[in-house]
């Protein structure tokens, strides 16, 4: 499983309440400025966990992780690769 920009954007967009459908999602823009406040981020966490089948650990549930689309991408990317490594280890 890969965390592509497109997949991440599909997950993020519905939670960017201040981003119009016609606007490009800037992966370096502050998510708060796009409408992802402390309430919306809880819904976003659930959406990410559902989409990528990984549970975000408490150490990553911080404002830094959810600062921008890129920081979310990096955090989820690290979880997905760990999860894939574990699955591969279990198979071998």
């Amino acid at each position: 499983m890969q965390v592509s920009l497109e997949r991440m954007e599909n997950v993020l967009r519905p939670h960017c309440r201040l981003l119009n459908a016609s606007e490009v999602l800037d992966f370096d823009a502050s998510l708060v400025s796009l409408g992802v406040d402390s309430i919306e981020v809880v819904q976003l966490i659930i959406a990410i966990e559902d989409e990528f089948a990984v549970q975000i650990p408490p150490r990553l549930l911080t404002a830094e992780t959810f600062a921008t689309a890129n920081t979310v991408l990096a955090a989820v990317g690290s979880l997905v690769s760990v999860s894939e490594d574990s699955a591969q280890e279990a198979r071998s």
Binding site: D37, S38, I39, V41, V42, L61, T62
Partner: peptide, 11 residues
Amino acid sequence: YPTRGFDGAAP
């Protein structure tokens, strides 16, 4: 159980 979000100010 840890909280599944983090605190934020009201708008």
